[in-house]
C-alpha cells in the first residue's frame, strides 16, 4: 500500500520533464518555419548565388552555362500590382470600417461585413478563372480603353492597350478583392477598438460623425491601420495562382500600366515545371523562393508588431469574426 507521503509527492511538480510536452508542441510552428528555410537553402545551393538585380532573365535551357537570372522584371511586376491594390484596399477598408463604426446600424453592417468576409473564402484559382474568362473582356474592351482615352496624357496611361484584357489592371482588381477581407477585418477591429467613450465624447461635443472618424478614430487607430496595410501588402505580394492566371506572364518591363507583366510568386509557380531538368535553373528558382520568403517574413513581422494584439476575437485569419 502506498503511503500518504507518496500520494503527496504525486501532487508535486515533476521538474523539467513535465515541461517537455508543451515545449515540444510549442516548437511545431517554429520548427516548420525552420524546416522551410533549411529546405529552400539546400535546394538553392550548389551553384553559388545565381540571382542578380538585372533585366535579363534567361535560363538558357539549351546551354546552362550561359544562363543569367536577373529578377528585376518580376520585382517590378510584383510592386506594380501589389502597391496599387494596397492603395485601393486601404481606401475601401477605411470606408467599410467607418461605415461599420459610425454610419450603419449594427445588424446591417454585420450582414454586409459577412459578405466581405466571404470574399476570403473563394479559392484563388476560382478568382483566376473568373478573372480570365469573365472580367478580362470587360477590362480589354471597356475599362482599359476608357482609361487610355481619357487619361492618356498621364505618364504610364498612354500607349498601346492589349485587347485581351489580361495585364496589370486586371491583376490589381483581382488582388484588391483577395486582399480586402484581411485588411477590412484588421482596420475594422482597430477602429472599433477605440474606446466607445471617445466616440461618444466627440459626438456629444457636437462633432459630426465624419469629424469623429477623421479627428478621433483615425489618429487613435493610426498605428494599427499601418500594420493592417503592411499585412495586406504582404498578402498581395505573395498571392500566386490568381495573379499568374490574369496578368499575362510576359517577362519584360511593362511599357505602360495596361501592359502584361509577371510577378515573383508567378514565376515561381509558372516556370517550375520547365526548371525540373536543369539544376541551375531549379536552384535559381529556389533562391528566388527564399527571397520571397524573406520579404514576406519581414513584412509580416513588421505588420504584426504594428497591429499588436487587437481585441479578443480578432485575428490575422480572415473569416473568424
Amino acid at each position: 500500500m502506498r503511503s500518504f507521503r507518496d500520494r503527496i509527492r504525486t501532487g508535486r511538480p515533476r521538474g523539467v520533464w513535465s515541461a517537455l510536452p508543451p515545449l515540444a508542441a510549442a516548437a511545431i510552428p517554429l520548427a516548420l518555419i525552420a524546416a522551410i528555410v533549411v529546405t529552400l537553402v539546400r535546394a538553392g545551393s550548389g551553384h553559388g548565388w545565381l540571382l542578380n538585380l538585372g533585366l535579363d532573365w534567361n535560363p538558357s535551357t539549351g546551354e546552362p552555362s550561359l544562363s543569367n537570372f536577373g529578377v528585376l522584371v518580376f520585382l517590378v511586376g510584383s510592386f506594380a500590382t501589389a502597391l496599387p491594390a494596397l492603395a485601393l484596399v486601404l481606401l475601401f477598408s477605411l470606408a467599410l470600417g467607418a461605415a461599420t463604426a459610425l454610419y450603419l446600424p449594427r445588424r446591417i453592417s454585420l450582414v454586409l461585413n459577412g459578405f466581405v468576409d466571404l470574399l476570403a473564402g473563394i479559392p484563388s484559382v476560382v478568382y483566376g478563372i473568373w478573372g480570365f474568362w469573365i472580367v478580362a473582356p470587360v477590362f480589354g474592351t471597356v475599362i482599359n480603353p476608357w482609361l487610355n482615352g481619357h487619361l492618356g496624357f498621364v505618364p504610364g496611361f498612354g500607349g498601346p492597350v492589349p485587347s485581351t484584357g489580361v495585364g496589370i489592371p486586371l491583376a490589381v482588381f483581382v488582388l484588391t478583392l483577395m486582399t480586402l477581407p484581411l485588411t477590412a477585418v484588421l482596420v475594422r477591429e482597430s477602429l472599433l477598438a477605440v474606446p466607445v467613450t471617445y466616440r461618444e465624447a466627440g459626438l456629444a461635443l457636437g462633432a459630426t460623425r465624419w469629424e469623429v472618424f477623421r479627428r478621433v478614430l483615425l489618429p487613435f487607430a493610426r498605428r494599427r491601420i499601418g500594420g493592417a496595410a503592411l499585412l495586406g501588402f504582404g498578402r498581395a505580394f505573395g498571392e500566386t495562382v490568381a495573379v499568374f492566371m490574369v496578368i499575362g506572364d510576359a517577362t519584360k518591363i511593362p511599357v505602360n500600366i495596361f501592359d502584361l507583366s509577371y510577378t515573383v510568386p508567378g514565376v515561381l509557380v509558372g516556370q517550375f515545371d520547365s526548371a525540373f531538368v536543369q539544376p541551375n535553373y531549379l536552384a535559381a528558382l529556389a533562391q528566388l523562393a527564399l527571397v520571397l520568403l524573406a520579404i514576406s517574413l519581414l513584412i509580416n513581422i513588421g505588420g504584426r508588431w504594428l497591429v499588436g494584439r487587437v481585441g479578443r476575437g480578432a485575428s490575422l485569419v480572415p473569416g473568424v469574426a
Binding site: I36, S124, G234, G238, T240, P265, N300, R304
Partner: peptide, 8 residues
C-alpha cells in the same frame, strides 16, 4: 508568419 507565407 506561417499563415502569411505565400502558398507557392
Amino acid at each position: 508568419l506561417l499563415v502569411g507565407t505565400p502558398s507557392v
